[in-house]
């Protein structure tokens, strides 16, 4: 930390730099606090006027008089679509990252890495258009097949109408978060110490055993961090979801049927027509999304911290 001893002369450059970096740190905290405060104040205003229960009402009539709205459907839709996205994207991303870092010949690895990074550069509205015009009609076959075998569970029941559903959204989100998870995971896997991989080889480990003994445990916290980055994007994704989903304020037991909504999608869809209370209501839902994201990140940090001494960072 900067020397505060009066007898030592601090150089001008050091002073300027320390002030600048301190200033940036403080600015960040101020901005975060300002956002949280703004959300909280407007949210309180909205929730006071709400005639329904903010947490459990299946309805969004914030512009009506009296206003009645609740986030139950949005919370459900946001969590479910993101969970589907993570369940599909994380294993595939880890697989691609392993292939690039440990199996593919160098030239192929570079090409695949480039293509994956390119996926990240596609704007989300393009994903949305592609999702609505291509993915939705092409889901019908898969969903009918799922319905045939698992329809009895109700969760995977499907009647063949256009699948502008949470499942389709989840699949689309999985494709959208794949690049960020893959590229972070790949970098972490590439950092596995060579000495440890050689130690495993010298014990008579096969290539897969080397990966299981050294690469995966070493990269564990990196995979979690990468997934959190992806989850953050999935939770907050707006345009693609708004384009694909056919929103409704119902919780359909089937994930394959059209309907549902997410926080970000609902805000985007309703903001233009919303009046005073309507806007505050949307901001209140935004606050819930903000808190949800904080909780998810906190949980991830806890998981990483719990195994810190085995992290390999102190090897």
């Amino acid at each position: 930390m900067p020397a505060t001893n009066k007898n030592t002369t601090t150089r001008l450059g050091d002073r300027v730099f320390s002030t600048l970096s301190k200033g940036s740190g403080i600015a960040l905290l101020v901005i975060m606090a300002a956002i949280a405060l703004f959300l909280a104040i407007r949210a309180v205003v909205a929730i006071r006027e709400d005639e329904g229960n903010f947490l459990t009402t299946f309805q969004w009539d914030a512009n009506a008089d009296p206003p009645v709205f609740g986030i139950a459907v949005l919370l459900f839709g946001t969590v479910v679509s993101s969970v589907i996205a993570m369940a599909l994207a994380v294993p595939v991303a880890v697989g691609i990252a392993l292939f690039i870092s440990h199996f593919a010949p160098r030239r192929l690895a570079t090409t695949i890495g480039y293509v994956v990074d390119l996926l990240a550069a596609v704007p989300s509205i393009i994903y949305g258009l592609w999702g609505a015009l291509y993915l939705v009609p092409h889901m019908t076959g898969l969903f009918l097949w799922l319905d045939q075998f698992f329809g009895w569970t109700k969760v995977l029941a499907y009647d063949g109408t256009p699948a502008r559903s949470l499942m389709t959204v989840g699949i689309l989100l999985a494709i959208m978060v794949l690049p960020i998870i893959t590229s972070v995971t790949r970098e972490v896997f590439l950092q596995t110490p060579k000495a440890n991989q050689e130690a495993a080889l010298a014990l008579g480990a096969t290539r897969w055993e080397v990966i299981r003994m050294t690469v995966l445990p070493f990269g564990r916290s990196g995979v979690i961090s990468a997934s959190m980055l992806g989850l953050g994007r999935a939770l907050g994704e707006t345009m693609a979801v708004a384009t694909v989903l056919s929103p409704s304020f119902l919780i359909d037991p089937s994930l394959l049927e059209s309907g549902g909504g997410t926080f970000a999608q609902n805000i985007a869809s309703q903001f233009k027509e919303a009046g005073g209370t309507g806007r505050d209501a949307l901001i209140a839902s935004g606050l819930v999304l903000f808190v949800l994201t904080l909780l998810v990140n906190g949980a991830a940090r806890l998981i990483i911290a719990r195994r810190r001494e085995y992290s390999g960072a102190n090897a």
């Binding site: 110490p193 000495a195 440890n196 050689e198 130690a199 495993a200 080889l201 010298a202 014990l203 008579g204 003994m213 050294t214 445990p217 070493f218 564990r220 085995y310 992290s311 390999g312 102190n314 090897a315």
Partner: peptide, 17 residues
């Protein structure tokens, strides 16, 4: 490699174990 074991220049215990 199971039959012929090896010890390396720098100690390299598995950090995650």
């Amino acid at each position: 490699r199971r039959t012929v074991g090896m010890v390396f220049q720098r100690p390299n215990p598995f950090p995650t174990m």
